[in-house]
Design a protein around this nucleic acid. Structure first.
Lengths: 171, 171
DNA sequence: GTTAGTGCAAACCTTTTGCAGCTCT
DNA sequence: AGAGCTGCAAAAGGTTTGCACTAAC
């Protein structure tokens, strides 16, 4: 049972072969509002097809990227050097990344269009791709950080675990 | 003779040791409106001190980045996966990168501040870093591309060299 | 049946790390 | 003197490539 979605159809039109592997990958990229990196995409795809190779993930992403079907983001490198991918169908938007919890919000709104127009006019530039990424702390994490700061200033009464379990680190 | 500039002074205040190697690197990053990547920075630095090691470049960049003294850009990956660096003193600005010739223009202007304010209000977000990068064709290259397209449509009369000599490629 | 696409292994490029020795302050 | 830095070598991430085999059209 194949989900028919935008990437799927766009590739079909271009005469690209829709292999089992690609269908799995397109499905993962296209649905899920998630911003996946190559490694996570690979992990998820492998659950559906354990033979699927990491290289196929990279090759597919490269094709989609060069075909202008996905955008590549780095989300302010909040968690390393990976790139993240999303379908290039939606309206232009900025990515707002919490550097503490990693949550990604999307901002649509007229300042983006205005910025784009002004740049085109100002330089006589022909824009093909645009990207705005913002890093900082989300409302929730601002509160948590304030608490952490406060706690750190007090003499410790017991072992305190930093709440950063979600964060991947280099080994 | 040492150029006194913002990075230099900022590090002095922080009690960071200003070694010969760092002075060379700071000098290169700070003057030159250039957006250098690690490798080019290394190459240029080595001209002044042939013993200077690539690792020192990376360590210095990392320190400056983590200290909030430089910003890291990728300029829409117009020429590979390198990161580019610039001093974080100037007013917020967008980078406008020509995907054909690599020229980088900087756009200052009120839409950027407006965007920033709106994001902060909308999400109750505390912005620490913001980055807007735009890729496309500069006025000059739009013309050249039009010519190339035209030439490609004609039967070729002789060997034509593509004008991409400036472009670095993977081997 | 063709030709594009896949998997595997190995290469590649960029960046980081461990450690002994050097050098700023 | 001593902590902080550097250079060197080696490793680690992330991504790409060469090639023989497989599968989509």
């Amino acid at each position: 049972m194949i989900a028919h979605n935008s990437l799927h159809d766009a590739l079909k039109e271009r005469g690209v072969r829709l292999t089992r592997q690609r269908q799995i990958l397109l499905d993962l990229i296209d649905k899920t509002g998630l911003h996946l990196d190559a490694e996570n995409l690979y992990r998820l795809a492998k659950q559906q097809d354990p033979k699927l190779n990491r290289v196929t993930v990279y090759r597919t992403l490269k094709m989609l990227k060069e075909g202008g079907l996905v955008d590549e983001l780095d989300l302010m490198h909040w968690n390393g050097e990976q790139h993240y991918y999303e379908t290039r169908t939606k309206q232009e938007h900025a990515h707002v990344v919490c550097l503490r919890c990693g949550k990604v919000e999307e901002f649509f709104g007229e300042p983006l269009q205005k910025l784009r127009r002004q740049i085109e006019e100002h330089f006589g530039f022909q824009i093909l791709l645009a990207r705005t990424e913002v890093g900082g702390y989300c409302a929730h994490c601002q509160v948590l950080r304030a608490r952490e700061m406060h706690a750190a200033a007090q003499p410790p009464k017991g072992p305190s675990k930093k709440a950063d379990s979600n964060r991947r680190r280099r080994k």
